[in-house]
Design a protein around this nucleic acid. Sequence first.
DNA 1: TTGAAAGCGTTACCAG
DNA 2: CTGGTAACGCTTTCAA
Lengths: 348, 348
Amino acid sequence: MIGEPGVAVTIKDVARLAGVSASSVCRALADPDRVRPETRDRVQTAARQLGYHPNRVARSLITGRTANIGVVLPDLGNPFFPTVVKAIQTQARRRDYAVLLTDTDEDPAVEVPAIRALAMQVDGFLLCSPRAADDELRAVAEKPMVVLNRRISPFPSVTADNSGGMRQAVSHLHALGHRTISYVAGPRTSWSNRDRLRGLRAATSALGMTLIEIGNVAPTVAGGAAAADLVAAAPVTAVLAYNDLVALGLVQRFQARGIAVPGQLSVVGFDDILVAALVGPPLTTVAIGKEQIGRVGVDLLLALMAAPGAAGLDRAGSERAGPGRGGRARRVVPTQLIVRGSTGPVAR
Amino acid sequence: MIGEPGVAVTIKDVARLAGVSASSVCRALADPDRVRPETRDRVQTAARQLGYHPNRVARSLITGRTANIGVVLPDLGNPFFPTVVKAIQTQARRRDYAVLLTDTDEDPAVEVPAIRALAMQVDGFLLCSPRAADDELRAVAEKPMVVLNRRISPFPSVTADNSGGMRQAVSHLHALGHRTISYVAGPRTSWSNRDRLRGLRAATSALGMTLIEIGNVAPTVAGGAAAADLVAAAPVTAVLAYNDLVALGLVQRFQARGIAVPGQLSVVGFDDILVAALVGPPLTTVAIGKEQIGRVGVDLLLALMAAPGAAGLDRAGSERAGPGRGGRARRVVPTQLIVRGSTGPVAR
DNA sequence: TTGAAAGCGTTACCAG
DNA sequence: CTGGTAACGCTTTCAA
């Protein structure tokens, strides 16, 4: 660290010190093979000496690339998302991208404006469980987008194997003797909720079980607590929740009412957030590879941005851009039932 | 939405449609009072019609401002941080700033490079519980910085009243009959850890209690679990943990070993993360206004950026820039002991 | 292999 | 109050 001027050091400073033109500095740094080794060394030395780092903003203006990716998600307060964001962040930094984050507070109306606001300073978006309508999202897609935890037609997506998870959970309950169970649904705007419900219906009917669906609640502990009394009033011996937060709210309210878990009622969550293992009784839940979702999402997005017609939705049929290219890939990460203490044999 | 060209619409397009120069468009949009009302209307109509939004990247280049703030934190996996980030994000968006996020994975060595990498695309930084050395942080401060959960000399800071929290916790334990207690320390690099320990020592000695300090552990559930056996082997009746995660790890391991909480050992956490209320027994802990920390942090940073000599560290004494200006303000948010089930009277 | 020059989209400055 | 022009820092032609 020799040079440390108060103001930023520009390419011109390096050029002057190295005794070459700005163009050469640019080349020497970006494409070391296209300049004479001697020049390259002089430039690199000068750059290091001055502590020069190219101004990414200025570069963006000419190249159109920003080296930023935008991440939009509904609620950092749901422990599921920080885990995904952390994975995104890690993978993005590895690929030399920075992450611009927006939390929409579960408000669908905020998503589109947020995307529009960020659009100019990012090369692409990772939409985490977006709540807005398909058409709105398609309409705002001027930049490459990858959708996480949802599928929207032309965009690549990364989702969890919700059906598989539900199948595992249901057969677990079936084996324990449960025949009539209920599902506490999450937000109506949540694709994962619909996907889980779909899988759940298939699984229960395949096993000849009865499913009682209970209204849509907020994907929070409070949401679960609010639904608990409805569940208790239904003739069920087990309940599956949209996610762990809801399941936790259910358990909490059951316990407050003296309803034993799993003695009188078994409870199954979804996501396997950290706290699921810590509560009493520990929560039986369906684990998702959250890190994998984030990581794969970044990879897909980078592939998409690198692709030839890297517009938002690859208009004009995108030639033969198969899923392999990241074209409109649909990656599904596996789920795994984690059996813990909140499920048990049905009381006879 | 009338105009929706495939490519971005620039100021020139608006100028052409409105029949004025680019300069006028700029003014009409930025400073509506400085142009004739008629012109203003024509420009605004044209802009709306074309769906024009100024290119923030290009603007940055000339103004030097980016409308981004950088947030650097050690671990999104610790539920404390997402809550703070959410508050930051909300407040930032309200003020029309976007948030660039970096998770350093508790690695002090990553912080400085991360800051340097982001420096060019942000107007200032919010350093959340930074782990690097004071000098390193001061050295990298080319942009305004506000530090959260730590105090570093020339920077404004927002911290929790750790001493007050510890005092409340200790007198709570004292009232329950505890006389010898231990503290399971967090990362050595954590200022909060040192501050809490400081407050703890003062509180215990004021009440004539004995404090047994137990080594530094990672601020995670695993860290707590790892320290549990050391605590159990010490002649204490209660233990305070660096944070809730560590406390949870302690409780978990105690229960696995058949040590009753709070029957044989009382446990107190810090932070009051969501899960603290959900575990069994619910965790007695010291609550911090996490949202407030984030919100105040943003306000302080904005004030600092607006300040006259808005360099990183306001060199040259910054005239009379008192705390009121956000100069080198030190805001302390209150803490509040939340008594739950993990603490009880000492077994006789 | 290198340098000069032309932008990228915007704002700031200075005449008019 | 308005329009031209320069400039921000960089990359990318195009000649030499």
